[in-house]
Amino acid sequence: MIPALTIENLSKVYSDGFEALKGISLEVQQGDFFALLGPNGAGKSTTIGIICSLVAKSGGRVSVFDADIDKDFPAAKKHLGIVPQEFNFNMFEKGIDIVVNQAGYYGLPPRLALQRAEKYLKELGMWDKRDVPSRMLSGGMKRRLMIARALVHEPRLLILDEPTAGVDIEMRRSMWDFLKRINAEGTTIILTTHYLEEAEALCRHIAIINQGKIVENTSIKHLLRQLHKEVFIFDCVEKLPDTVVIDGFTVRLMDAHTLEIEVEKGQYINQVFSALDTLGIHISSMRNRANRLEEMFVNLVEGTA
């Protein structure tokens, strides 16, 4: 099967000499939900900019569904839908006009453009706001408008650059559901995000980019298996003694009713429960200290810094 996106040895040096990409290579398969993670300035937006032609590459090769951007960029662009990080529409135009015009730029006749605009604005809960000038929309609505605009020509590959930045939790969840659904229907999705929880919840594969290089490119499951330890927080029913010791585990007393315990790779959480039971400590609830992926991300990024 042809990959949805192939990047080979891609490099970018800006006019001020800054080397944003140092020969990255990447392949995203059709139907995948792919996360591109990295700290600010790592090269994520530059990569997306090159794929969609807003940034000129310095070297390397990019092809979208086998259409090389150097040989047939229009064919590659037809397969692409882009949701950029910054709002990039005319703030004086109505939402419906923005989406219909975008369809026109892809050659969709007006009647079909209007049908598609209605379909996607309705699916994203924006139909009631279609005649509102875009500057009057909330941040979350503007993001959804950009998603509708990117989908109006029904691209096979949708790229979202931080789609849920500044969006409230409820709206973020509804956007996740929508993205999961269109992915299940066959649209390949690549997203960059700062919310690692988002990548873990949505994506099957992940690439971590740092200082213009890919430092990890694997499945989320595989990445999480590499974690050497996890930290759990236990909320205890009774007041805890001044010290709690469990052989083989690092235990920290957070407050009179809370314990933090590190579980290393190869250890079992059952051992912790048994030890706590022996000590007469009763647990009312338990949770992860932090997002597991976040820990992995920090380790990888710090390892390459």
């Binding site: 969609c52 032609s53 807003l54 960029f73 229009p74 064919a75 662009k77 037809k78 692409l80 882009i82 950029p84 910054e86 709002f87 990039n88 529409f89 005319n90 703030m91 923005i98 015009n101 975008q102 730029y105 892809y106 050659g107 605009r149």
Partner: peptide
Amino acid sequence: SHSVEELLVSP
């Protein structure tokens, strides 16, 4: 306003 990008990313 960067809305020119709507055209530039299109074919």
